[in-house]
Design a protein around this nucleic acid. Structure first.
Length: 392
DNA sequence: TCTGGGGTCCTAGGACCC
DNA sequence: TCTGGGGTCCTAGGACCC
């Protein structure tokens, strides 16, 4: 059997563990009121006001001004997440981490150790609560997909077991809106096609489904509707891209400011690349205008970008190739096509020695938390780049 | 004061090659 | 009295999830 485990209102719950006086209160973790942004997670008390994840923070504020609003402390949640995953691993060696707050456990063969499914689930819940103060919800089923859906059914602190052989019947008991993998657009298509229930959906054969929703999409829906695992967590694959993006508090058409944002983001990404000892052959820039129209441009080359400067140049060039001069709401940069033979020597010191040396200085400073490069220094080239940045 | 930031995967269309 | 056809690679956009 598979156990799908989900931490309840994770970010909000961590804040409540760290600040017990917040327990039971409406708590919203995400953007701060007055800023652009959305709710990341909120406590169950906040949900009673109609607040939910991805809601604009202004709307959350309107619904419950007396709520406590806290910023996202991702480093802290990562830390707690690692503790939780380690506890899961004490119950079975086969833990598939799905996200920061979810995991899928293969519990086959652990009966002798932990007893039946219900007993094992109780032990896991107790261990997590005791060691972290957090509650979890667990779904148990013969495949990972059904286990995941079962997990979402009763929260918080839930436990739902789907008896093997009952997968198809279980699916029929769900609402169409609960079908994981069919989001807003697909739900709209369902409505247009007159599909209103899981039963309606399960009536479609595979060929018809694929003609309507594409090869992969149709296959997914066909299997999911029957409670067969469409393979959502199939291959444990390495990360394929890293990226960062920024929504400005006010839309901007200031060229220097936009370029500066790109340079800052390239620097962040380079640091991560450096820490991971990877090289990237591809750069992508993303732009969002005031009207939310979003576009992307990318470029890739046969070999790895060899230094911060090269990545910045590529990103800035892509930006100018796309930007129409209108006010920009968001800029993003990401790197992809990681080189398999990423050699750090080539990456940060080889061909372009000076730039490489500069990069190293920047990274060394950042890693020691000793301040940042100034804007001017990042912007100025090439006369400035021979000198290492002053450490103040 | 509408609409974050981190990702993954799929698809359609054009370029290019044989 | 034309303009095949298949395969692969790349790019941009989009759907979806946490």
């Amino acid at each position: 059997l598979y156990f799908h485990i989900d931490l309840d209102a994770f970010f909000a719950s961590v804040e409540q563990v760290d600040q017990p006086e917040l327990l039971g209160k409406p708590l919203v973790v995400g953007a701060l009121p007055g800023n652009r942004g959305v709710v990341s997670t909120c406590s169950y008390a906040a949900r009673r006001f109609g607040i939910h994840s991805a809601m604009p923070i202004s709307e959350a504020w309107r619904r419950c001004p007396q709520a406590v609003f806290l910023p996202v402390r991702m480093a802290r949640y990562d830390e707690v997440s690692r503790v939780v995953m380690r506890i899961f691993e004490s119950f079975t060696p086969d833990v598939l981490q799905v996200s920061i707050d979810e995991a899928s456990l293969d519990m086959v063969g652990t009966e002798a150790l932990w007893g039946g499914a219900a007993a094992a689930a109780a032990r896991i819940k107790a261990a997590i609560l005791e060691q972290t103060g957090l509650t979890i919800s667990i779904g148990i089923a013969a495949n990972r997909y059904v286990a995941k859906l079962a997990c979402g059914l009763r929260k918080p602190d839930g436990l739902v077991l789907v008896e093997p052989g009952q997968e198809a019947a279980f699916m029929l008991s769900l609402r169409l809106a609960d079908l994981w993998g069919a989001g807003a657009k697909t739900q709209q298509r369902f409505a247009e096609l007159g599909i209103r229930t899981m039963k309606d959906l399960a009536a479609y054969n595979q060929a018809l489904m694929q003609s309507l929703f594409g090869k992969a999409g149709g296959q997914f829906l066909y299997l999911a509707a029957r409670g067969q695992d469409p393979g959502i967590y199939g291959h444990e694959s390495a990360r394929k891209s890293i990226g960062t993006e920024l929504t400005f508090e006010e839309d901007s058409e200031d060229r220097e400011l936009l370029e500066q944002a790109i340079l800052d983001m390239c620097q962040q990404l380079c640091l991560r690349l450096f820490q991971d000892q990877k090289g990237a052959c591809g750069v992508q820039v993303k732009l969002r205008y005031h009207d939310f129209v979003t576009l992307t441009v990318q470029a890739s080359q046969p070999s790895v970008y060899s230094c911060l400067d090269e990545i910045c140049k590529a990103a800035t060039g892509l930006f100018h190739a796309k930007w129409n001069g209108h006010a920009v709401r968001l800029i993003g940069v990401s790197l992809f096509n990681f080189s398999t033979e990423a050699r750090q020597a080539e990456l940060f010191g080889g061909a372009t020695e000076r730039a490489g040396a500069l990069d190293k200085t920047v990274f060394a400073l950042q890693q020691r938390g000793l301040g940042k490069m100034t804007r001017a220094r990042l912007l100025k080239r090439p006369s400035d780049k021979d000198k290492p940045p002053a450490p103040d």
